[in-house]
Design a binder for these strands. Sequence first.
RNA 1: CGGGAUGUAGCGCAGCUGGCUAGCGCACCUGCUUUGGGAGCAGGGGGUCGGUGGUUCGAAUCCACUCAUCCCGACCA
Length: 572
Amino acid sequence: MRLTRYFIPTVKEVPSEAECASHQLMIRAGMIRKVAAGVYDLLPLGLRAVRNVEQVVREEMNRAGGLETFLPSMIPAELWEETGRWQFYGKELLRIKDRHDHEFCYGPTHEEVMTDIVRREVKSYKQLPLTLYQIQTKFRDEIRPRFGMMRAREFMMKDAYSFHTDEDDAAKGYERMFKAYEAVFKRAGLKFRAVEADTGNIGGNSSHEFMVLADTGEDTIVSCPACSYASNVEKADVPSPGPYAAAAPEPMTEVATPDQRTIDEVSAFLKRPSASFIKTLIYTVDDKEQVCVLVRGDHEVNEHKLKRILDATTLELAAPEAVLKVSGAQPGFVGPQALKIRIVADHAVRGMANAVTGANKDGYHVVGVNEGRDFKAAAHHDLRNVKPGDRCARCQKADLEFHKGIEVGHVFRLGTKYSKAMRAVYLDKNGKEQIIVMGTYGIGIGRVAAAAIEQSHDDNGIIWPWGLAPFQIAVLPLNVAKPDIAEAAAKIEEELEAAGYTVLHDDRDERAGFKFNDADLVGYPIQVIVGDKGLKNGEVELKIRKTGERLNVKLDGLKEKLRETAAVLAAS
RNA sequence: CGGGAUGUAGCGCAGCUGGCUAGCGCACCUGCUUUGGGAGCAGGGGGUCGGUGGUUCGAAUCCACUCAUCCCGACCA
């Protein structure tokens, strides 16, 4: 491909809106342009990279027995009403009305649609298992889209759905998909880690996320250096607490703490460590009931765990008016004593003696609070986030390590959540009706491309992994005004394309430095530099983008050398 | 949703205490020179100053509303 007939609008200056490396570089390298918040044009170069990701994914899905489909992006409300998600998915679901006032949503995921196909067409155990997938544009109306393709509202996703006769078979399907995912991310050249994850909006029994390790990642993951345990913090178990220290209970005493609301403020004001506080939070559950949640002052509530334990559909911190109503005080001065609502507490609260908490009276806290005497929790659970210094809950042998990660894939064992709601059933060998057991598996296509850049770039630009590079080789004639250089470059382009490489021939009438910088920015893994000096000796220069290594190669040995180099790059 | 900020040429920005023809760098076009790490000189094109309304002799500049974008927060008890 000749660059003068192609379209790679590179830019020198960094657009002010882009913060992270992949976002900046995708704009600068002429891959994407923004149209609206979280909505992007994919320019030719960007599309080539995305297509490469797709292709890797497609091949591995097919290898795992998946069958490709293509479902509508507009989904009628009725399907989502069947599973209840029309109501519960919230504002992330973009809802649209057609001219007849019929309600639709722009699909953020397709469990309902895929299950609808299967319930209509699959009747017998003989038709199972079945794995269907698609690669398609999704829309999620994110609160705050950011980081370009990393968290866009409109994005490309591969979503696969598997349908099974029973849990055992579903487990096998899950395993097969898990392996396929490992193969995909390996081929994409990513450093990644599979971690246990919360099932969130999708639901189901268990799930793993595939995380690309990168400091700019939005998720925090923990892993144990001593065993194989790895988890998203949203899900990570806190080790069960040790024996409780007994201490003689002191009388409960009110102390004035004017304008001191946060734990930090009160802790400094009273000169008591935050770990001696009971943090008292009032949550509104499913928009009706208020529940009091207690954790130690230096701990954070994990709302994913809380939601699961309360079996809640929605969960939010109660509004100040609601807090006032149940406690008689403003947020910041609430304590569990004498509250009439349900109290759930973290395990760590059980061991606390003579704690500090709000007095349920504005401007006051109480000290000497003891569970049993002063309040009683309905139950104790693991309700908090793990934090640095916590031991691995699995093996108890080492402290957890914390990393940042970008979620590029997520696999779920769904059980019968959707098939039951939508009555997707089959007849077993005995002619008895059974509910289909499902799995669902997603990969963010654009996110994989962005993550690859995030993980592989330098000050000069992108360094594409061989398998994703929009073009594998750039041919750079240094002076196209000289016919012998231009002709040699054209010939090399032709021959390398014939040999099966994707080649971008920068035939623009530009200066050498300009072309070098552009090529480094775009990130072609290999540059073939055609210049005066080398050509006199029948040589061209190879530059490896990743290592910066340069070597002179005889023209007749070029293909052989490229074969070797490509093999090394493809393997790394 | 709460807080903060910003909208001036394709991109990055200046101008903004009301006052001349709205400017600078990059990019773009023409010509000459140049040609191994984002060239030099000369000439040139490109703007409803986000939108609407107001104040004024006069508005990019002041006021109101509105739209868009970005940042931070949404764990405060």
